[in-house]
Computed example of a mutant assay.
Amino acid sequence: MEVVIAPGPQLARLAADAVGALLSRRPDAVLGLATGSSPLALYDELARRHAEEGLSFARARGFLLDEYVGLPADHPERYRAVIDRELVSRVDLDPDAVQGPDGTAEDLPAACRRYEEAIAAAGGVDLQVLGIGTDGHVAFNEPGSSLASRTRVKTLTEQTRQDNARFFDGDAEAVPQHVLTQGLGTILAARHLVLLATGRAKAEAVHHLVEGAVSALWPATVLQMHPHVTVLVDEAAASRLQLADYYRDAWRHKPAWQGL
């Protein structure tokens, strides 16, 4: 696990560098796309590079991490609508090449199985963008989730519903109770994980993610078991890290040819 501590705008540029380098060597790469607040600056930077520098997503494919259950297809906070608004509509990524779990399906377990099969059929995810919740969840794998889980139905904690109320005019009751989410095992199957976290509210979760014991109580800690994880955090999110000085030193002396 590589930890990079830097100002927020630099984090977005570093994550965009990783995406750009991947698309340069593999234009048909499969991207794992997260929603929420954490990746928004990254999507802004990717859109800028597409408009100003010619970064192309024309042959790429994308898979969403998760989706709310029961929101109508035209709801603005449905995650497929969010990713279309924040990224797909701003670059040359074919909308038909982006898939998400079907939160409107009548048979939700079957929809989850189909989603796993679609990811496998695409050859797996090359680079997965991630955020982290204040309670250590990634995607919607809430505390107590199986560390080997695959795409499935999950019930959101009240903490997560409160955290997400800002997207529903501050009304936590408007946040759906259930979601479809890639499991921790599904996420671990991606070849490169890039996690972004900013702000002091994420500091405890980041501390457990990087330096804590692997535990279902803090689901993100399972990422310690992955061979290629990049954790991009600002000073506030890094404020609980005991080895912060080492991470800064390692980044400062990292060979340029390694990339992220």
Rank of each mutant, 00 (worst) to 15 (best):
Y115N: 04
D135L: 15
L209I: 00
L22G: 06
R78C: 12
D126T: 12
Q242K: 11
L93V: 00
G144C: 02
L156I: 04
L260N: 08
V179D: 09
A51N: 12
P27I: 01
Q159A: 14
K202W: 12
S89M: 11
E116G: 15
P255T: 01
L40Y: 05
T160K: 08
T134A: 13
L195F: 02
A237D: 09
G54D: 11
G8K: 14
H226V: 10
Q128R: 11
L223F: 06
D44K: 13
E2K: 13
F140S: 08
R25S: 05
D84Q: 14
H226N: 09
V231N: 07
G170S: 04
V222Q: 04
P7D: 05
T134S: 10
S215N: 12
A256I: 01
R166Y: 15
D96G: 15
L180W: 07
E77S: 14
L33D: 01
L55D: 07
R85E: 15
R26E: 10
V138R: 07
Q128Y: 15
G131I: 05
E204T: 08
A15E: 00
Y247K: 00
H208W: 06
R152G: 05
W257R: 09
I119T: 03
R191G: 05
G170V: 03
E116S: 13
V4F: 10
E106L: 14
D171G: 02
D28H: 09
E158F: 01
R191M: 04
G133N: 05
A118Y: 08
A111M: 06
L188I: 00
R25L: 01
T151M: 01
A203H: 00
L241W: 06
R25Q: 10
E52R: 09
P176Y: 00
P101Y: 07
I5S: 06
R200K: 12
L65F: 01
L11R: 02
R61V: 02
R240S: 14
A73W: 11
E67D: 15
L193D: 08
A15T: 01
A236Q: 13
E77W: 12
G123F: 11
S24N: 11
A250E: 10
L260W: 13
H226R: 11
R248M: 00
G103V: 06
F167R: 03
P255Y: 01
Y43W: 09
Q128V: 14
R114T: 10
I83E: 08
Q177D: 13
I132K: 04
R59L: 06
Q242Y: 08
R240H: 15
R150Q: 02
A201C: 06
A73P: 12
D74N: 15
E67K: 09
G100D: 05
M225P: 04
R161E: 04
N141G: 04
A203M: 03
D135W: 13
R49N: 09
A118T: 11
A21C: 14
P143T: 05
